[in-house]
Design a protein around this nucleic acid. Structure first.
Lengths: 111, 111
DNA sequence: GTATTACTTAACCAGATGGTTAAGTATTCT
DNA sequence: AGAATACTTAACCATCTGGTTAAGTAATAC
């Protein structure tokens, strides 16, 4: 699922759509308006988000209303959190990095 | 930058590479070994990660040693965190959702 | 100097992505 | 019934992606 989640988030239009949905449920035309592209293009983005589980679709007659579902982001957040120690520890590791840099390059151990 | 970061994370091979690097710097062949694909394929993945700023490359003679750089993940984490309230509040919103579901569908206000 | 190692680059391929326009389907309005 | 609205689906296109094999480059080993 992480594949689809991250892939969905990689597109700025889709992140924008999620941002709009975070402020309330909206239908397709309403979501399309701020984005300078055709309705079918938006429709495709919505399907990608839907397949990624990031939104739910409800039909009221001819209107499709979208609702944000942030659950898949939990898994993504957990994954990313795993790596937080690395940017936290970045100062120490920067020192280590610079130290290595001053060393002769050839005779390096392949640890 | 979020585009490239999320796109980089959308591939399982690349996430695996990052996981390996989290346990220590490694060269290309070493990173390639556990992944059932050719060296050029891995090389491409590394370039994607590098362009996304998720790793740094250092050359020691013919060996290219990769080091994880998790800084770009900070921005990604911040983005995802914005949406945490939505899965936290999901129970309340589920109730609201079910309530709507019992309503007649036709005469719905386009809020 | 030759062979081996550790890579990258190039050329290619199939399939996915992100957009388009045109046409189709329901639903609501008059 | 007919027109307008809110979509989706279909067909198409260019570009990107993720893989391949083959060839090239640079450094180390013998």
């Amino acid at each position: 699922m992480l594949n689809r989640t991250f892939a969905a988030l990689a597109d700025p239009t889709r992140r924008s759509i999620l941002a709009h949905l975070a402020r309330g449920d909206k239908c397709v035309t309403r979501l399309a308006k701020p984005h300078a592209m055709s309705l079918p293009a938006v429709s495709k983005h919505l399907r990608v988000l839907e397949k990624a589980g990031l939104l739910r679709r409800r039909r009221y007659g001819r209107v499709h209303e979208m609702r944000l579902d942030a659950k898949p982001l939990q898994e993504a957040a957990q994954w990313v959190e795993e790596y937080r120690k690395f940017w936290q520890g970045s100062l120490d590791r920067l020192a280590e990095y610079l130290e290595k840099e001053n060393r002769p390059s050839a005779k390096r151990k392949t640890k």
